[in-house]
Design a protein around this nucleic acid. Structure first.
Length: 288
DNA sequence: AGTATCCTGGAA
DNA sequence: TTCCAGGATACT
């Protein structure tokens, strides 16, 4: 379940490892995972590495690009000459490399390989022609991005934007945080943690937040996302980095995945409920 | 606005 | 054996 910090970690490592690498062949073992014509990208080099919310945009030097959405269980792992000392692969790479869940393999020059593993086959890699590319192809529509990285590709979410978005909906505030059309990049882990840090009940109607609460939540979102990036993402579930190692944020989450454990602030038991069909963790005492 | 759907392994 | 996990979308 890569979210903004995880996808940013991947983007940054892809840039390090793939820059200048040439695609010699593309082996598609599951057609559901690769959309477009593989022949359009064979022979081209990786030159651009961007991220829009949770979506990766990899530009090639031949007027084509790759758009990648990892969804829940997608993993991109590189092995090759740009890894000086290949670290041991995480156990989160279920099935091995290549293995049972390897859906696409990019064979690169100088004996390099980029593997796309995806246990649940929700993720996809799409080939687009730059001249015909429309941003809507990324995802239906993406909203503002919280300023957690120096130069986001999407318009930056300001406190004012955030306040406008919240005041326009009476839906539960957590659902608004995770609505990619409004705010891009936040998923279940960071939504839970940001709401805990701000002391706000995830079920509160978005338009019921007072100014100081909006302000708190805005700052909390930026803080947890930056924290996630600093820790190299959260490997709570299936996330691994491009070098095959795990992130560390899962050891620093406040409430996500901690049902029954003690609230880090007051010690009370962390509760779990369903909200919009998703597991929602919070402390009844600390979040009002 | 709320719910089913895609998919598969792992937990209950 | 059933249920749950979850991002985004297609439904009702």
């Amino acid at each position: 379940m890569p979210e903004l910090p995880e996808v940013e970690a991947i983007r940054s490592q892809l840039e390090t490892f793939l820059k200048g690498h040439k695609i010699e062949d593309v082996i598609v073992s599951d057609k559901r995972s690769f959309l477009g014509d593989r022949r359009d990208i064979i022979g081209s080099c990786f030159v651009e590495f961007s991220r829009f919310g949770k979506v990766l945009f990899l530009g090639l030097d031949n007027d084509f690009s790759l758009i990648v959405h990892l969804k829940l269980t997608g993993q991109l792992v590189y092995r090759g000459p740009n890894l000086r000392k290949p670290p041991p692969l995480s156990e989160k790479i279920v099935g091995g490399l290549p293995g049972r869940y390897t859906r696409v393999v990019f064979k690169l020059d100088r004996n390099g390989f980029l593997y796309f593993n995806d246990l649940r086959v929700f993720g996809w890699i799409k080939v687009v022609k730059n001249s015909e590319f429309k941003p809507e192809e990324l995802v239906k529509r993406l909203g503002y991005e919280p300023p957690a990285v120096p130069s986001p590709s999407l318009p930056t979410l300001t406190l004012k934007d955030f306040s406008n978005i919240l005041s326009k909906s009476k839906k539960a505030v957590k659902l608004i945080l995770m609505d990619q059309e409004k705010i891009a990049g936040i998923g279940n882990i960071y939504a839970n943690d940001a709401l805990f840090l701000a002391g706000i009940d995830p079920r509160r109607p978005a338009n019921s937040l007072r100014d100081y609460e909006q302000n708190n939540l805005y700052n909390s979102i930026i803080k947890v996302l930056k924290d996630g990036i600093k820790r190299g993402g959260s490997s709570e579930n299936t996330f691994v980095n491009v070098d095959g190692t795990e992130g560390k944020y899962q050891d620093f989450t406040f409430v996500y995945g901690k049902v029954g454990q003690n609230c880090p602030r007051c010690g009370a038991e962390i509760k779990k409920i369903q909200l919009g069909g998703r597991g929602t963790y919070f402390c009844e005492g600390c979040q009002k």
